[in-house]
Amino acid sequence: MAKLEILHFPDPRLRTRALPVPVVDAAIRQLIDDMFETMYAAPGIGLAATQIDFHQRLLVVDVSEEKDQPLVFINPEILLRDGVEEMEEGCLSVPGIYDKVQRAERIKVRALDRDGQTFELEADGLLAVCIQHEIDHLDGKLFVDYLSNLKRQRIRKKLEKARRQGEPDPVAEHGETAL
């Protein structure tokens, strides 16, 4: 297993439209494991392949409190959408930024699982929001796209500045001490 690097807005690679996964093989399963490790370490509840610079339609999700309900969606399609819900969203590719986004309240999704088997799932609440958010990534779309131009520019500047400063660590782990 390996932790992967997550791309950060405004990296242009986040705008790539992903192609379908042609075959669910051992390499894809390895990638899925690495994506879970990366997501849990972040810590996150969802991660799309686009965010780790792999441009096939694949995402992983776990919205459970105990982090024991991993879900894999390969080549996902949303079959039904119902209702409207507004939730505060963030994104591992847009660290530290949170804002309200409107999405469908309930969805029905069809996808392949990690063995390449087709399944369908109905979701609502946080899970529904998370799946929609991650599928957006596969289409090169970010949650900040739903915000006003002004807000998006402000976020872009803030993240570019944070990157330049390299996030100093004022009280870095002192590790070994005499205690």
């Binding site: 100093p168 660590d169 004022p170 009280v171 870095a172 782990e173 002192h174 590790g175 070994e176 001490t177 005499a178």
Partner: peptide
């Protein structure tokens, strides 16, 4: 001169260096 996260120290994971005060 400036503290850093240990992961950023060259070769830290491979044991090139540790963090420990001079007195210790």
């Amino acid at each position: 001169d400036q503290p850093v996260a240990v992961e950023r120290l060259p070769g830290f994971a491979d044991g090139a260096v540790s963090v420990q005060d001079a007195a210790a």
